[in-house]
């Protein structure tokens, strides 16, 4: 059985962030090796400023109350926890070039790589998830 979980984060909203980081932290807490490849809008999730205020999908703003009630950790908290548990973050070089971003725009502790970096890691991962 593979002990690796590979995740592609390609969307940049608040819900996307929860899907990505909940699965990632749960997997890491279950002694899995976890790597997340952030590409296109997914880069928001580890962008120093953007990650502080990710948007809800239009028309779903009322759910903010539900989030508070359920005592869900904030995205920065989840990110910190994921890193503490050893989850590796890879930012997509190509998307960064398009958007004019550098490594300094992102939280500490990330790596930058291309599609092949991810594919090499994911070739024997199970499951590979895309959000």
């Amino acid at each position: 059985m593979s002990n690796k979980v590979a995740i592609i984060a390609s969307n940049g909203g608040l819900f996307d962030a929860y899907k990505v980081f909940n699965i990632a932290t749960a997997a890491a807490a279950s002694d899995k090796e976890v790597e997340i490849f952030f590409t296109f809008e997914g880069l928001n999730l580890i962008h120093k400023q953007a990650m502080q205020a990710l948007s809800m999908p239009e028309g779903k703003e009322f759910m903010a109350e539900g989030f508070a009630k359920a005592n869900v950790p904030s995205i920065p908290e989840l990110v910190e926890m994921a890193q503490e548990l050893g989850v590796k973050f890879i930012a997509c070089q190509m998307t960064m070039d398009i958007m004019g971003l550098t490594k300094e725009d992102f939280i500490d502790g990330i790596d930058v790589g291309g599609a092949v970096t991810f594919l090499e890691y994911a070739k024997d991962a199970s499951p590979t998830l895309t959000f």
Binding site: N22, T25, A26, A29, D31, A70, N71, V72, P73, L85
Partner: peptide
């Protein structure tokens, strides 16, 4: 108590 997924698992680990 009061924590939602995935916190109970993370804390347990």
């Amino acid at each position: 108590k009061g924590l939602s997924c995935p916190m109970p698992i993370v804390k347990t680990k």
